[in-house]
Design a protein around this nucleic acid. Structure first.
Lengths: 197, 197
DNA sequence: GACTCTCTAGACCGGTCGGTCTATATTTCA
DNA sequence: TGAAATATAGACCGACCGGTCTAGAGAGTC
C-alpha cells in the first residue's frame, strides 16, 4: 500500500514511505489520514490496522486506551506540525497577511491534492462528536494555535479566532464543493481586511 | 421522550413536541438532532429509530435509500431554516453587520443551550466524510446560503465565503472548548472589519 | 542456554451496523 | 363492503464494530 504520508495542510512532508516507520509511528500517521478522511466514528479499527499493516495486538500494546488514545496521539502529532509551521513563520519576519496567504494557499493545494477527501484533523474529529478526552486534546491544540498567532495579531485574540475559524470552516465548504475556491476566497477577504486596518 | 425539536441555530422553533408530528417528519427532525450531535457515521439507524419512536419499516418506507436519503432530507430541512432566516433578515433593511451580530449571537446561544453537544448540521456531516449524494446536497445548501448573502455583501462572494466559513469554523472551536467565546470573538472581529470598510 | 521484557500476531467475544423481508394495520376510494 | 394503496411493525441477515485474550517471536542480558 503506497499510501502517502499525512498530510497536515502546512507541513513540508518528507517523502518517506509509511512502511519504513516503526509500528507505533505508522499507526499514528495512518490514523491522521483516516480520521481526516472519514472522521472518528467513520474509521474502524480493522480498516485502520489493515492500512497501517499492523495486527490488532500492536494497537492495544502501544495504545492501551484503544481508538480514543490513538486519536489523541494523532491530534498531538498534528499539534507538532501546526506549532512548527507557525513558529517558523513567526520567526521569519512575516506579517499576518503573509502568513494567511501562505497558510490558506497551502491548505487549498492540500485539499486539491487529496481530491477533497480530507478535512483538517481537528475539525473532522470534533465536529461530529468524539469521546471527551479526545475533544479535550483538540481543545488544547486549538488554544496553542491561538497563542502562537498572538504575536502576529498584535495580541488580538478575536483576530486569532477569526483566522482559525475561517480556515477550518473554509475547508469544510471546499470539501462539499469539491473545489478549493472557498478557501482562496476566504483568504482574499481576510487579507483585504488586514490591509485596511 | 421529551427531546426538544431541532435546532437550527437561527430558527425560531415552535414549541411543538416531536411526538405530535407524523412519522416521516419525526424521522427528519430526529435525524437533524442526532447528526448534529454525532455526525453521519456516529449515528446508527437503531438509535435514530428509537429516538424517533418509529419502527425500521417506516424508515425504509419513507426513505428507500436508507440512512443517506434521510440525511439528505435532514439537510434540506435545514436549508429551509437557513433560507427563511436569511430572507427574513434581508428584507428587513438590516445591514450585514446587523445580520452577523444576530446570526452569531443566536448561534452562540444555541451552542450553549445544547451544552456544546451539537455542531452545525452541514459541518457535522461533511467534515467527516459522507456518501457522495449527501455531500452534494450539503453543497447545494452552502451555495444557496452564499447566494442569499450576496445582496448584503454588495455582491462580494469573497465576503460571503468568509462569513459562512467563520461561522461554521467558530462553532467547531467552541464545541472543543465547551465555551461560546470563539463564536462571539469571531463575530466581533468580523463586525470590526465591516465597520472599517 | 535461560530468563525477561517488548512487541507482533490473530482468534475470538458480544454487540451493533445498515439493510431486507414478510406480515399486519390503517386509510382511501370505488 | 371490498380492493388497493399506504404505512407500521419487527424478526432476521451477514458484515463489521471496539476490545480482550493467549500464544509466540525477537532482542537484550545474565
Amino acid at each position: 500500500m503506497a499510501r502517502p504520508l499525512p498530510s497536515a495542510p502546512f507541513s513540508g512532508q518528507p517523502a518517506k514511505n509509511l512502511g519504513d516507520l516503526q509500528t507505533k509511528e505508522r499507526l499514528i500517521r495512518t490514523a491522521v489520514i483516516l480520521f481526516q478522511t472519514q472522521g472518528y466514528h467513520g474509521t474502524g479499527t480493522a480498516a485502520l490496522l489493515k492500512a497501517a499493516n499492523a495486527p490488532k495486538g500492536s494497537l492495544y500494546h502501544h495504545f492501551p486506551g484503544g481508538k480514543a488514545e490513538l486519536a489523541i496521539a494523532a491530534i498531538e502529532w498534528i499539534e507538532g506540525e501546526i506549532l512548527a509551521a507557525l513558529s517558523k513563520t513567526a520567526n521569519s519576519g512575516k506579517t499576518l497577511a503573509d502568513l494567511i496567504g501562505w497558510l490558506f494557499e497551502g491548505t487549498a493545494r492540500w485539499a486539491e491534492r487529496s481530491h477533497f477527501e480530507e478535512s483538517p484533523l481537528l475539525a473532522a474529529i470534533t465536529s461530529a462528536g468524539a469521546p471527551g478526552e479526545v475533544m479535550a486534546a483538540a481543545d488544547r491544540v486549538y488554544r496553542g494555535a491561538e497563542d502562537a498567532l498572538l504575536p502576529l495579531t498584535g495580541g488580538s485574540r478575536d483576530l486569532a479566532a477569526l483566522v482559525i475559524s475561517s480556515l477550518d470552516g473554509s475547508v469544510v465548504l471546499a470539501r462539499s464543493r469539491r473545489d478549493a475556491e472557498p478557501i482562496r476566497a476566504t483568504s482574499r477577504e481576510l487579507r483585504a481586511y488586514l490591509s485596511s486596518r
